[in-house]
Design a protein around this nucleic acid. Structure first.
Lengths: 213, 213
DNA sequence: GGATCAGTAGTCAAATTTGACCACTGCCGT
DNA sequence: ACGGCAGTGGTCAAATTTGACTACTGATCC
């Protein structure tokens, strides 16, 4: 699973109602074009697809206020909301995911209650630890570690990554448990979208030096 | 860029001449189905595509010795070899890549001379350091770090990942400089493919507990 | 007053990826 | 002697992703 569906669902959800370009802009505001495959084509495709699947409801709208082709506005449905939370929970707990999925999930983590967020992250750590154990056991050949040659470096990288990921997650859990950030049901939510007309301080036309590709 | 082209090119190259199923098997032997998108469809597609592009030469071959449809055998061309090394160098140095690309590159690193491998990895470290600097500078808002809210955790994750990646790479450089492994032009190369009929100790039908997905 | 550039909004063809499926062989148990 | 299953070798349709492109508005430059 790529991160695009989660990102798009979450963006539409925060707006209540949004057209493609708005979503596109939010994702850029979040830096998502730097760590995920959030290209225009993917976004519009995801919107259409999820509308077809009943996760979003499409409103055909008159020509836009500011040039360009007519826009379609989308609203998240109940099924869409369920799907959003399902994706979010899965993305937070599953260790076997690419970085972009986790990044996206962190971006929406405050849409969950604080307790649940912590519980899910703890499950993530457990998963990482288990996976680390199973990899080291499974890929440790009887002929000694040298029989793998440099291929062993790949295993080494996985295992180290797992350790790093677990450690980082523990840090995040600690911060959340100590009261950082504002979670669902704790009053004024964090505003993660720009108001109309607000300028985006992080957006530049071309990806800046240091793009994640 | 995904890792599949590098993997397939490298596999064919090591065999001298290989059919799709052989490639498929090598990749499984390397565990690539656990950390990359090396599914049958992708592999056969990549083979055909690269044959069309002149990177591989396709030999139409009689029905296989062991059941199933007729096989096509592929041989790497000169252009294919150039492409292989080009992809390999890029994958080793570029910090803005997904893990699967780096894993694949590590798997072929010994196809380079030792000096060059070290140089490329050092460049990787430089890239990571620079990128870290540019991200921290670029995404540090004037209103203080708290203005980003939990979104700051995403930046934090990137930056920590960069630090981890750099540190891991430094470790690898150290091991290589200390003489580990056998690189190009240093005699008997590491055998990374199974001989025909050899059984694969790491293959199971279903991905084992702890699949990277 | 025309060129051209940045911003708004989205489309399209081509390439790639996914996941399921086909067809055949040989072996193993009953 | 025959059913089923694992292994061999690959195809296919559908979904997704990519990268380039269209088309329009408003402002700015010279």
């Amino acid at each position: 699973m790529s991160a695009i569906r989660l990102l798009v669902l979450g963006a539409v959800r925060q707006h209540g109602r949004a057209h493609g370009y708005q979503v596109r802009n939010d994702l850029e505001y979040w830096g998502a074009h730097e760590w995920s495959n959030a290209k225009p084509g993917s976004i519009y495709h995801a919107l259409k697809q999820m509308a077809k699947q009943g996760l979003l409801h499409a409103h055909e709208i008159a020509p836009s206020t500011a040039g360009g082709p007519p826009r379609t506005e989308y609203e998240i449905t109940e099924r869409g909301t369920e799907e959003f939370f399902s994706l979010l929970r899965e993305s937070l707990t599953a260790h076997d995911q690419k970085t972009d999925v986790l990044s996206a999930a962190i971006g929406f983590i405050v849409d969950l209650p604080r307790d649940e967020a912590v519980a899910l992250l703890k499950e993530r750590v457990r998963g990482l630890e288990q996976w680390r154990a199973s990899v080291t056991e499974y890929y440790t050949p009887e002929e000694g570690p040298q029989s793998l040659g440099h291929i062993g470096e790949i295993m080494n990288m996985w295992v180290s990554s797992a350790d790093f990921g677990a450690e980082w997650t523990r840090g995040l859990i600690r911060r959340i448990e100590e009261g950082a950030y504002t979670f669902a049901g704790e009053g004024e939510p964090f505003v993660g979208v720009r108001a109309e007309g607000d300028e985006n301080p992080y957006a530049t036309g071309e990806p800046h030096e240091g793009d994640l590709g």
